Simulated assay, not measured.
Amino acid sequence: MTKNELRIRLIYVDEDIIVVDKPAGLLAVPGRGPENQDCVVRQARDYFPDVIEQPAVHRLDMDTSGLMVLARTRNAHIHLSEQFARRKVKKRYNAILEGVIVEDAGEIELAFRLDPDNRPHQVYDPEQGKLGITRWFKLAVHRGRTRVEFIPLTGRTHQLRLHAAHELGLGCPIVGDRLYGQRKPGERMLLHAQYLQFFHPTTGKKLVFRSAVPF
């Protein structure tokens, strides 16, 4: 599938929010340059022209697939943003890592920051970095690789990718991670946002969405 053929899948739509399943390889928000304008936000606005100009309240890396929620109105954006800021939103990711992890579960706490000389790469920095916390569970081991579930308790840039790859984390990069590991030709990064839970910005009802893992 070429970049121009990557399309979001609509999971849920009402007057306030849009929940989509993002394919790997598609940007969440517009990037720099005309060649990087196709993204989740633009496609959502193609479907629903009344969506506010900046509907994104969180992001997934371009190479990550899975669930995203977008705000359709300004009021919804405010309420959803507050939920993310207060860590009321629950997310779960499924990933396959290069290497075998011996432990069954654990929690990673590592502080990291942007490397300004190698954007968008993040580097471990216990003094000036922002703390990222990830809970993880081993699901299976097959042919020298480990499938895990990640539950991020914070939402730092590249948090799961760095926590997987760094020697003070799991020491096993996510398969296909071109920044913190290696990617073979034709391979995608095996990280998928499979579960998303939050409260509806208008009704207050708890909403739960799941997406089948595509690998």
Rank of each mutant, 00 (worst) to 15 (best):
W136C: 08
F150D: 14
L114H: 06
G181F: 00
C172D: 00
L110M: 04
Y12P: 11
P152I: 03
K138A: 10
Q122T: 11
I174Q: 02
L70K: 09
L70W: 10
R147N: 14
R42A: 12
P116G: 07
R7D: 13
V175F: 01
L153D: 09
G25L: 13
L190C: 06
G169R: 02
E149Q: 12
R145V: 11
L114D: 08
E187V: 01
A165K: 00
Q43N: 11
L168F: 00
N118G: 07
D50K: 13
I78P: 02
K205W: 14
H200N: 02
Q43H: 11
E149K: 05
A105G: 00
V29R: 08
H166S: 04
P185M: 12
A164T: 03
L131G: 07
R135T: 12
G33F: 14
D14W: 04
H142M: 07
V51D: 12
D38A: 14
G106W: 04
L60T: 05
H166P: 01
N75L: 10
D104T: 09
K90M: 05
K90Q: 09
R86G: 08
E187R: 06
R178A: 08
K130A: 08
R86L: 13
L10D: 04
S65E: 15
R210H: 15
W136E: 13
L6M: 01
L97P: 05
E127T: 06
V29K: 08
K184R: 14
P173N: 01
A95Q: 06
E107D: 04
T73H: 14
K3Q: 10
V20N: 14
L153G: 06
I174K: 00
Q128M: 07
I8F: 02
A111I: 00
K3T: 07
H77R: 15
N36Q: 09
K138M: 09
V20T: 12
P30I: 07
V102Y: 10
M62L: 13
L110V: 03
K138S: 10
V102K: 12
W136A: 11
R178F: 03
P30T: 07
P116S: 05
K184C: 08
H121W: 00
V208G: 07
I78Y: 07
D16L: 02
M68W: 09
L162V: 07
I96M: 02
L27T: 11
A56Q: 12
Y93Q: 04
A56K: 08
A212I: 15
V19H: 13
R143S: 15
L26S: 10
T146M: 10
K206D: 01
P116Y: 04
D125K: 04
M62V: 10
D61H: 08
E167Y: 02
K138C: 08
K138Y: 07
Q37Y: 13
L10A: 02
R210V: 15
V41F: 03
R183P: 05
